[in-house]
Amino acid sequence: MLILPCPWCGPREETEFACDGEVSSVSVDPATASDGAWADALHNRTNRKGMHREWWCHRRGCRQWFWIERDTATNQLRNSGLPGTES
């Protein structure tokens, strides 16, 4: 079980958090995107082996969302930050 750093509450166990998958780098304008581009932005993820950025929410705590870099192969954690600094 991971221990994750909540930006407000500090290190807490994974069971207090919810993960929302990788931070998507795709940005499309819904008004102009083709069906294919829109569906791709909605559903497809890189699913990288190694370090990537993903969203977590301290769901059973202060409800703060944050991003963190996690190695999907080793679970090693690196930088994290509040929403707005993810890209």
Binding site: W55, C57, P83, G84
Partner: peptide, 14 residues
């Protein structure tokens, strides 16, 4: 629903 609202308020509509 509360999670959903928080997600949008914090991540998109700050």
């Amino acid at each position: 629903v509360v999670d959903w609202i928080e997600l949008w308020l914090q991540r998109a509509w700050r």
